[in-house]
């Protein structure tokens, strides 16, 4: 991604950066959607950099903005219920399928719940994915209450003693109260049967500064434990995810890099930061 490439190239061999170089750095950070606030913070701590150790120091500065929380999936309970949430169109359903496929490939048992009963053909979409990756999908009747589908799925998962239950939910804008309250309800009915082990918020890499508001309000409503950043195969750099980690201490756990079930990986911070600083 090379946010710092130009900057570091200029800095090499010099003792300090000149004002023009700072402007370049600032522009690169802003263009990555890191946002004015975090950009200002990074620039401030970077201003003490000296030429030769610039690269290492920049990496460290960025590292200090990452969350120190675990990026692994929690395995605290026997059946782990994972709730997947986010605004419309970010890639929730696809990510649910990708995550199930990843778990499945480790020979762990997994079941899906189609709790998006709202959007046209959302249930079919998840069922198609289920068939494609060979994972069972629990769904309700047309127009069923999402909470009742989630409730049934939790019971089915417990009875089948699968290791993971992943619940797909309808996209919802965070400023819609009734829809956010509905999410809380989905969470509570699952908890009658199974503890929720993770709530993953799906953030589209193209998202701008609104991502912070999304994360903040979803976290208030359902206690988000991690992020999935999707569409990193495009030209967007997904700096908003870094801004969210930094502002709210919610770790990025997975990244999506395409439309196929294998275009998905656990988030690797070292690689990510190296990518930002180097090429």
């Amino acid at each position: 991604m090379g946010i710092f490439s130009k900057f570091v190239a200029k800095l090499k061999g010099q003792s300090t950066a000149d004002p023009l170089d700072w402007k370049v750095l600032e522009e690169e950070l802003l263009a990555a959607d890191i946002g004015p606030t975090l950009t200002a913070e990074i620039i401030k701590s970077a201003q003490s950099l000296k030429g030769d150790d610039a690269l290492a120091s920049l990496t460290n500065i960025l590292k200090s903005h990452l969350s120190t929380k675990s990026r692994e999936l929690s395995v605290a309970s026997d059946v782990r219920a994972i709730l997947v949430v986010g605004v419309n169109g970010t890639g929730k359903t696809t990510s649910v399928a990708k995550l199930a496929n990843l778990i499945h490939s480790f020979n762990s048992s997994v079941m899906l719940a189609a709790a998006d009963t709202f959007r046209a053909a959302a249930v079919n979409q998840l069922q198609t994915w289920g068939e494609r990756i060979g994972v069972p999908v629990i769904s309700g009747k047309d127009g069923a209450e999402p909470a009742s589908v989630a409730f049934d799925a939790a019971i089915a998962a417990k009875e089948a003693a699968v290791k993971f239950l992943i619940i797909d939910t309808a996209g919802r804008l965070h400023n819609k109260n009734d829809l956010m309250a509905e999410l809380g309800k989905i969470r509570r009915v699952i908890e009658k049967t199974l503890p929720i082990s993770e709530v993953l918020l799906v953030i589209d890499a193209t998202t701008g500064q609104n991502g912070i508001a999304q994360a903040k309000i979803f976290a208030e409503a359902v206690d988000v434990t991690g992020l999935i950043v999707t569409k990193l195969d495009g030209s967007a750099r997904g700096g908003i995810a870094l801004a969210i980690e930094s502002a709210l201490d919610i770790p990025i756990k997975f990244i999506g890099t395409g439309e196929g079930e294998r275009d998905f990986a656990p988030f690797d911070p070292e690689r990510y930061l190296n990518g930002l600083v180097n090429d």
Binding site: L30, A31, A32, D33, V87, G89, D204, A205, T206, T207, G208, Q209, N210, G211, Q214, G234, S235, A236, R237, I240
Partner: peptide
């Protein structure tokens, strides 16, 4: 285009 899009809007629109 999604109203929530960030700086990538210009690259994508151009593409």
């Amino acid at each position: 285009v999604d109203a929530m899009i960030g700086q990538d809007a210009v690259r994508t629109a151009k593409a």
